[in-house]
Design a protein around this nucleic acid. Structure first.
Lengths: 200, 200
DNA sequence: ACACTTCCTATACAGTTGTACAGTCTTTTA
DNA sequence: TAAAAGACTGTACAACTGTATAGGAAGTGT
């Protein structure tokens, strides 16, 4: 985390106002999009005033950056949480996939936020996808220098494969669910599941 | 189309102001999202004043509805454009898939708009996904009563399959492209392609 | 006790938003 | 040609936007 260090008024169980602002921003951004979320809405949700948001983050864009940084941190933490003992490479990769999947399951807002961030994309700003790609690429490179990853594909190919595996289903499943909603016989656990693969 | 009938000032080759407004709205909504697009921006792009938008569409939400209706019409037209002669069912379905794919290739803004609309997801309003689902369901039912579609799956299953096949790749491909951008060796035509399938 | 830093509220401001409306053209109808 | 209808502009307005800033409250260090 970027600054979950206990500030002056931080109580042990509760969150700092600064952290609360960031958390509510994440949830509201995920639900309504950045453009459609005003600072006043965030302030109200976090139980503070607009001024405090400005005090802590300066501008709305800086707040967005902080939110994105927190999301990236969540990924990094999930990956770092699995130890790199001398197990086979396939095991390690699978364990990391599981850790990321669990993190995403615990933080549905992250999934929604990511979905939006992906297509909003582009522009000049160094954005979320770039950061996540960088994170994954570093992960792949580490595995390679440790002799744990195949070098028959390029790094790029491996990164794309990993990210699509991790994110692909999450992006498309809501569409499937939305459609399934409209048919009685598709309700329940027998709902169709997506399978996303890559060809070349 | 809903109202491409020639109005008073419609010139043969050009578009009515009303249609121009709708078209620019579609493009701007697709690029920046509905919430981040103001009526004044749309007016400027269409070369009219805000007042005219209000005059023709009343409210911004009504304009959104009109845009969505036009998108649905594009799908319906694409499907209706392939004749239903007595060819095998598989041929017909494939031809319709091609027609839809061509329509989407001709209207990239529709793809971008759809991507946004899908995840913005609904609330109370009868939204785009519902309408497209309805359209596809009708298509499936027609094929069934004509004895051209299998009845071994439920209608719902067939609808989901068709829509995911048609839309799935379009949604995920931008993510792949974005990631591929960051690696030199993934540029060009050999870019990885997605394959989206359904399991049950 | 003091100053000092940090957290936080309140208010203000210029710019933008969606909507409303009065009025002016232009076309159609009769 | 007169009148009715529709297309279109310009201006106005209340509500909301992000940002700025002055000042109070609460903590820490000396």
């Amino acid at each position: 985390m970027t600054d979950r260090v206990a500030g002056p008024r931080a109580r042990p169980d509760d969150l700092t106002a600064k952290a609360r602002i960031r958390r509510e921003a994440l949830h509201l951004f995920a639900e309504h999009g950045v453009g459609a979320t005003s600072l006043r809405t965030i302030a109200a949700s976090a139980g503070v005033t607009v001024g405090l948001i400005v005090h802590h983050y300066g501008t709305k864009e800086a707040l967005c950056d902080a939110v994105e940084l927190e999301v990236v941190d969540l990924f990094a933490e999930a990956i770092a949480s699995v130890p790199v003992d001398d197990r086979p490479a396939a095991d390690l990769v699978a364990a990391r996939d599981v850790a990321v999947a669990e993190m995403l399951a615990d933080n549905p807002a992250v999934v929604d936020y990511l979905r939006r961030a992906i297509l909003h994309g582009g522009g000049d700003r160094k954005d979320l996808v770039s950061r996540l790609t960088e994170l994954t690429a570093q992960q792949v490179r580490d595995l390679r220098t440790a002799g744990l990853a195949s070098t028959r594909q390029t790094v790029g190919e491996q990164v794309v494969t990993i990210m699509v595996r991790q994110l692909g289903r999450l992006f498309l499943q809501p569409l499937v669910d939305r459609i399934a909603e409209e048919f009685d016989d598709l309700a329940g656990p027998s709902r169709p599941q997506l399978l996303v693969t890559l060809t070349r």
